[in-house]
């Protein structure tokens, strides 16, 4: 187990190194010149050269990347070109909002997804089952900005139940979390349905029925815990999908998280922020996968650690 963990941790570190290299290289190749943007249009060639030197942007690529890595070891993500603030400070200020959104989204998708999956499995082959599965297909086929804008229009503009955007109260959280949750619930409901059907087919369920347990008890005590575990183990992998969605959902709802930070930085070519957010997201994804692997081990003891 220790061995397995050690190897997976090393692997994760290498993956993060790779992500940092590719992102850095991509941004290095960027045709637009950040120095010009910082210096402004009327800057003299001398000023531009000074700023370039100051930022170390006159150095060759490998030197720049090496410096970045060394700073990274001290958890220093560099300074934003345009906001003149440490990137780590900017991200740290925005991270709680994104984490809150993540908790909201995961709760929404679990409640919706598991609920739909369980009902569909129990009503298998009926109209209810079919409609729920069509709904889950629509959930995974709807782009998040469309879902977000529609939810905004119906529940914020027309009905006025929720604020149109922003951050602060629970009411602000509902629509963005639901937008992210609808996509996830589509996946979860289908996984939950097939997991539940698999479990209900097992011998021990027949035994439980045969020894006279009530239907509710068989479902709640015997079927559900077994069916839910493999599905819950997927939450880790979900984080990757979540990290993709935050840029969209945060900009639709004006949610002040790191997705919005990244989107603003991309528009202004503020490279250190783009780098920082990409790395933080990649960390979250790698960590999520690690958790998913470990959770799967616990969920199914038959899986042997390789």
């Amino acid at each position: 187990m220790i061995n397995f963990l050690g190897r997976r941790l090393l692997q994760s570190a290498l993956i993060l190194l790779g992500v940092s290299f590719i992102t850095f290289a991509l941004l290095y190749l960027l045709p637009s010149d950040p120095v010009r943007q910082i210096a402004g249009r009327s800057a003299t060639a001398q000023t531009v050269a000074n700023i370039r030197e100051q930022l170390g942007l006159d150095q060759p690529f490998i030197v720049q990347y090496w410096r970045y890595l060394m700073d990274l070891l001290h958890l220093d993500l560099g300074r934003s070109y345009l906001q003149k603030t440490e990137v780590s400070t900017l991200i740290a200020a925005r991270l709680p909002a994104t984490l809150l959104l993540m908790v909201g989204a995961i709760s929404a998708e679990l409640v919706l997804g598991l609920g739909m999956g369980i009902i569909a499995a129990l009503r298998r082959g009926t109209m209810t089952d079919n409609s729920l599965m069509i709904a889950s297909f629509i959930g995974v086929s709807a782009p998040q900005f469309v879902v977000g804008l529609l939810l905004l229009y119906v529940f914020a503009v027309q009905l006025g139940w929720f604020p149109i955007g922003g951050y602060g109260t629970f009411a602000h959280l509902v629509l963005p979390a639901l937008t992210l949750g609808i996509l996830g619930s589509g996946w979860y409901s289908r996984m939950m349905r097939s997991s539940m059907i698999d479990v209900l087919r097992q011998d021990f369920i027949r035994t439980a029925h045969a020894k006279g347990l009530s239907r509710a008890r068989v479902l709640l005590r015997h079927a559900l815990p077994n069916a839910i575990l493999p599905v819950i183990a997927m939450i880790g992998i979900d984080i990757g999908i979540f990290m993709g969605g935050i840029v969209i959902v945060e900009s639709v709802f004006g949610w002040p998280g790191i997705g919005q930070l990244a989107w603003q930085a991309i528009q202004r070519v503020d490279i250190p922020i783009i780098m920082g957010v990409t790395l933080v997201s990649a960390c979250a994804i790698v960590l999520g996968n690690l958790v998913a692997d470990i959770a799967t081990l616990f969920a199914d003891p038959r899986i042997k650690v390789r």
Binding site: L27, G240, G245, A262, S281, V286, N289
Partner: peptide, 22 residues
């Protein structure tokens, strides 16, 4: 396959937005 793992860890949408903006 390590390259594939690496791509899996990339926030795909963020990467696509960066590339498209570049």
């Amino acid at each position: 396959m390590r390259l594939t793992d690496l791509m899996m860890a990339f926030p795909a949408l963020l990467l696509a937005i960066c590339l498209a903006a570049i």
